[in-house]
Write a protein that binds this DNA or RNA. Structure first.
Length: 413
DNA sequence: TCTGGGGTCCTAGGACCC
DNA sequence: TCTGGGGTCCTAGGACCC
């Protein structure tokens, strides 16, 4: 294992993606909103300077958006996913040891003149993809996160060899793995900085923060406890859920939404060559409106054998909705969770399964998937998903699918 | 009017077994 | 009188991440 770990982080990733295809957005304040245009999930530096926090609900920002002429975008995950893939492929030019950690971050194993490599890598990603990145290099993942933090605020590259002074200036709550709960508890115990946490007794850490805390503290001391994960295990669950664009009261609409989510979730597990053994459906009213009657519940359907066929999973999900639905409530959100995922290649049949029928369905699913891949999600769908979809989430301000839809190709002149 | 979505890991406690 | 203990599995809830 090489002695260094680098964290490459795309700066303000979603905003940077929008800027790649619309250079007029450079140097302007830009935000990208969550699904349903609910709250802010990405901010340009100009917006950060204005003090607008991550996760701020957009309806509270109206006056600021006006006053500073902030450019507002709905999220365009197809575009971001595509650019992310290009960034990751570029990183693979520099080392085979790439752990894709999230849509905009990767850990890399590096050795040699890491300062020079990091600088070169940063320039190459910028040149090949148009996305600015910061690179933090250190002996452990946790310290690489700290280094990245510094890199983002300075020249874009930071190699952290002797971090004591840096850790003394870092509030403990900003460490990777310390959320607001742990942060509060540490403050109560008089621990304010990352350096103080690093130098605390391990037995105390074990008792107060469990094994997760022990690993974190060891990492701060330069002892790697979170190795690079170069071949991630297959996922254990697949969730598809959305808030509705408006309150939903009728079971017919709820069924359309849940059928749509089940079909999308089924497509995801087929893409990953998995099958699901259990389908869970949940529905809920709007918890932000305590004045209205509240109801939320979930139902679990155990399948006789693992499936990834759209019809089977949608039917199971719809049975769950019938069981869950109570009239008289304004539903705000629903979701479908697929669990007990197993490899699709393992064929498991029971006495009553009809092989010929199963093969026909698999062929049909392959055709559906390929059409939806080629022409966009929703080209072919199950009638139970509904046509009008009045419940669908709002996305008023979405940018075009520059790299994934022929019709949206950027026009020059 | 208007507050995201998709994951993972850990722990504690109960049921059950021998 | 004296009432084990270790292991596994499952579940719910908590905490965190991006």
């Amino acid at each position: 294992m090489p002695p260094w770990i680098a964290l490459v982080d795309c700066n303000n990733f979603y905003v940077s993606c929008e800027r790649v295809f619309d250079p007029r957005l450079r140097d302007k304040p830009v935000v990208v909103l969550s699904n349903n245009d609910g709250c802010v999930v990405a901010r340009s530096n100009e917006v950060k300077t204005l003090g607008i926090p991550m996760g701020a609900p957009v309806f509270k920002l109206r006056s600021q958006i006006q006053a500073h002429n902030i450019q507002v975008y709905s999220s365009n995950y197809t575009l971001y996913g595509d650019l992310s893939r290009r960034v990751m492929q570029t990183l693979e030019q520099f080392t085979p040891e790439v752990e894709v950690y999230s849509i905009d971050e990767a850990f890399l194993g590096l050795s040699g003149d890491v300062d020079a490599i990091a600088t070169q890598l940063r320039q190459t990603v910028q040149q090949w993809t148009g996305i600015p990145v910061s690179v933090g290099v250190a002996p452990t993942k946790t310290l690489a996160k700290v280094a990245n933090h510094i890199a983002t605020k300075s020249t874009g590259v930071c190699v952290l060899e002797t971090p004591s002074t840096v850790l003394a200036d870092l509030p403990v709550g900003e460490l990777w793995g310390i959320g607001h709960r742990l942060s509060d508890r540490l403050h109560q115990q008089g621990i304010e900085t990352a350096l103080q946490l690093r130098d605390v007794e391990l037995s105390w850490v074990r008792q107060q923060m469990g094994v997760v805390g022990v690993r974190l503290v060891q990492e701060l001391r330069g002892i790697s406890c979170l190795p690079l994960d170069l071949c991630p295990a297959p996922r254990k669950s697949c969730c598809m859920s959305r808030s509705f664009g408006r309150p939903v009261t009728a079971i017919a609409e709820l069924k359309e939404a849940v059928a749509t989510y089940a079909a999308r979730a089924a497509a995801k597990v087929r893409r990953d060559e998995l099958k699901a053994g259990v389908v869970t459906v949940f529905i809920t009213t709007n918890r932000f409106k305590p004045s209205e009657p509240q109801y939320s519940n979930s139902a679990v359907v155990q399948l006789p054998q693992p499936e990834n066929d759209m019809f089977t999973l949608v039917q199971a999900a719809l049975r769950a909705v019938e069981w869950l639905y109570r009239p008289g409530y304004q539903y705000k959100k629903a979701g479908v969770l697929l669990t007990e995922l197993s490899p699709a290649s393992v064929v498991q049949t029971d006495l009553f399964s009809n092989l010929a029928q199963q093969e026909k369905r698999e062929a049909l699913m392959r055709t559906v998937d390929s059409l939806n891949r080629q022409f966009g999600v929703g080209t072919v769908f199950y009638a139970a998903e509904g046509i009008e979809k009045g419940w669908q989430m709002r996305t008023m301000l979405r940018s075009p699918g520059y790299t994934t839809r022929w019709g949206d190709l950027l026009l020059v002149r």
